[in-house]
Every structure is written in C-alpha cells, then in structure tokens.
Design a protein around this nucleic acid. Structure first.
Lengths: 162, 162
DNA sequence: TATTGTTATACTCTATAACTATA
DNA sequence: TATAGTTATAGAGTATAACAATA
C-alpha cells in the first residue's frame, strides 16, 4: 500500500487553483488592513500611495503612464494626484515637448513619504513571510508573473480555443 | 570566477518579497476586472458575490459568521445580504435557538448563481495558470497560507521583538 | 481626428456610530 | 451588560461621459 506520485510539470486544475484564489484575497485584505494606520499617519490614502509609488518608480511619469501602469483610468489617477499635489508630495509640470502632457515628479517630502511607507510594507511582508523558504517565494513569484502576463495580455494576443 | 550559491531554507529578505507584493496587487486587479462583466450579467456586485460564496460554504451561516469569515464588519455584510435577499438569492430566517441571530441560506437561484460565477473564476484562473507547474502552485499555496496565518494572528499571539 | 488631462457624476466598498431586540 | 443585527452616514475607489487644449 505504498503510493509514490512523481508529477513533473503537471497542469493545474481548478481544484489546485481555487484555494489559492481565496488565500490571495485574504492576504490582500489583511495586509491592506494592517497598512491603514500607517497611511493614515502619513495623511494619504491607499490609492494615493500607489500613485505616489508609481510616479516614484517611473522614469518620466505623465498622468496617463501612471494610469496605464496601475491599470486605472485617467480620471481616477487625476483625483489621486490632486490630493498628492495639495499635500505637497507631487509636482505637476506641463511638458515642453507636448503641451497636452503633464510631467509628474515627487517633491522631497513626497520622496520621504514614499520611502517610509514602502519600507513599512517591506517590513510587514518580510515578517509575515518569515517561515517561508526562498525557494517557495521564488516559485510564488514565477506563478504570479505568469498569471499577470496571461491576464493582462491584450485580447488579440490570446489564443482562441481550438 | 565561479560562484555557486546553495541556499536551503534561506530567510526571505525585503528584496525577495517586494516584487511579489506588486505582482499580487496586479493579479487581483486584473482578475477583478475580468470578472466584472460576469458579475454584471448575474446582476450582483463583487461584495455580494463574496457574501454569497461564504454563505454557500459555511455550514450554518449567520450574519456575524459571514462577516468574520470575510474579515468585514457586520454593517457591510448586512448591506450585501440586503441586496442578495432582494434579488431572491439568499433567505434570512430568525434563529429559533437565539432569536437575535439570523440564519442565512441560499435559495435555489442563489445556488445556481454562486456555482456559475465560482465556476467562471475557476476557469479564468486555471487558464491563467496554464503554464504553471503543480509544484510551483503548491509552493504558492504554502506561501500564502503562512502569510495569512501570520497576518491574521490575533495581536496577543504575535511574538514581541526580543 | 486623436490624445492628454480634467470635471461632473454615480455606484460600490467599507467603516464608525447609534439604535433595537434579545441574551 | 453583552451580543446580533440593523440603519444612518460618510469617505475612499472606481468608472463613464463630456469637455478643453493640443497634436
């Protein structure tokens, strides 16, 4: 009565994916909840933080590049930037090359806020993943990279069912 | 100039966790976006679906057990159940044992809607994870189980820094 | 005409506070 | 007193539609 299963590159089934769906939802909910007091202390909202973080990580950030990077519409990002600008964390400047476009940049205070919050996220998640092996973590990253690629591929790129 | 790194159960560092944070955010955003038309067709919202799904998976579902399971407050869940009841997908019944409590159950239509949507999620995610090995998927599940456990542990349970 | 940004508006998600009924 | 549920209210997140300025 000994069973040895050697599965190499077995294809995922619904049974294997669905538990992960619920776990991911839960992790996201719990971590956002943990971040709330941190963001409140900095006086910004979640949406504003992601906008701030994206402006920070892009070379040249315009409103539409930020929106594209976050997968949001421009009105949504525009509102977030409004708040960040009012709080003195982001600057808007009309582009010289294309006067329709707005170049976004962080103020010194914006840089500090972004660094503090991102650092807090890093510490929170690193602690939460304390027991996890680097190998499992790398595997997770591979999984989410592939899923992201599949989910965000433009409609025309997707293979139609044979 | 040959470097061989053999890391067994190396502890995760911020460097290894942060990319995953952004990927998870992106996967969640993209999959919710994909689900929107499906939910719209069924005439329910995301929040209502999670409430429906939770009522469906719990043995005995009261408003507060559903709220606890979803990590939400009772007013939030109450509002979602209002909508589901109005749509004829969920029934409310005062408990006989404890007349403060409300027993929630799915109507036949509710069961069908829940099954259809959950099935759609399963297909969407299984397709999206098509290239992923079962081993990597299992690793991801381990990672998210551990992170969930750490993030949702009650405050008193957490070890304080030495 | 097409694109960038903006304003106006509406709906959903979520929480806190205050209340009712029951334990 | 404490708990289950509800109502009222408000803030945040998001989208669509309509518009101005520029390309």
């Amino acid at each position: 009565m000994v069973e040895v299963a050697v599965l190499v590159r077995a294809k995922p089934t619904a049974r294997s994916v669905l538990p992960l769906v619920e776990l991911v939802r839960e992790v996201l909910r719990a971590s956002l909840q943990r971040m709330d007091p941190v963001l409140a202390k900095e006086g910004i909202t979640k949406g504003q933080f992601w906008a701030l973080h994206t402006v920070s990580s892009l070379e040249a950030a315009s409103l539409s590049t930020v929106a594209r990077n976050l997968g949001l519409t421009t009105p949504t990002v525009c509102a977030n930037i409004d708040g960040l600008e009012a709080a003195g964390l982001v600057r808007r400047a009309r582009s010289e090359r294309d006067r329709r476009s707005v170049e976004l940049s962080l103020t010194p205070r914006g840089r500090k806020v972004e660094a503090r919050v991102w650092d807090h996220i890093a510490r929170l998640m690193t602690e939460a993943a304390g027991d996890v092996s680097d190998a499992d973590l790398a595997a997770s990253q591979r999984v989410f990279e592939k899923i992201t690629a599949r989910l965000t591929a433009p409609a025309g790129t997707r293979r139609r069912a044979a």
